[in-house]
């Protein structure tokens, strides 16, 4: 994941799209995917390429949920808070998980081991409550089940 990011050439990403403002979000998405976050240097390169003012790009970066201006943890845990999951207790599951790894709210642990995000409906309502751990769906999770899965990742 994040480790391989160093090998990726940011200039190659920048050159994927024409230098127009409408490609700002495309570029930021590709950079986010490659590096797990958007560094100030990367944002400046994107602005130079697309001709978008830095203040505008910063507004975009902070408006949309999928962009992060700081590095994320090694393991990404997403707990779905869609309506079906909410009714089946996903709010408590998220709280219990965060408490167990020392987070007060969604975010990244100090040791950069975990990032916990709460996400809006993943559209997997038949599996409610659902969580996604490093891109793998965890159907019908419970607090103990999810905490166990997550702890195992950390110990690995």
């Amino acid at each position: 994941m994040a480790q391989t990011a160093i090998d990726i050439d940011i200039d190659e990403i920048i050159e994927r799209y024409p230098g127009k403002p409408e490609y700002l979000i495309f570029l930021m998405q590709d950079i986010q995917a490659a590096f797990n976050y958007i560094s100030p240097e990367a944002l400046t390169l994107v602005c130079d390429h697309t001709g978008v003012a830095e203040s505008q790009a910063y507004a975009v970066a902070t408006f949309y949920n999928s962009f992060s201006l700081e590095p994320k943890g090694e393991n990404l845990v997403q707990v779905c808070l869609g309506t079906a999951c909410h009714l089946k207790g996903s709010g408590l599951i998220a709280e219990n998980l965060m408490r167990s790894i020392g987070l007060d709210e969604p975010g990244t642990t100090e040791d950069l081991k975990y990032t916990v995000e709460t996400v809006n409906c993943l559209g997997a309502c038949a599996l409610a409550p659902v969580a996604v751990v490093n891109e793998a769906y965890q159907p019908k999770v419970s607090s103990p089940k999810l905490m166990k899965t997550v702890k195992k990742l950390g110990d690995a």
């Binding site: 944002l43 003012a53 203040s55 505008q56 790009a57 910063y58 507004a59 902070t62 408006f63």
Partner: peptide, 17 residues
């Protein structure tokens, strides 16, 4: 273009990058 809104919703504020 020195300033913009930062963030969204109730957390929104005004500032430079």
């Amino acid at each position: 273009n020195a300033i913009s809104t930062v963030g969204r919703g109730a957390q929104k504020e005004i500032g430079s990058p």
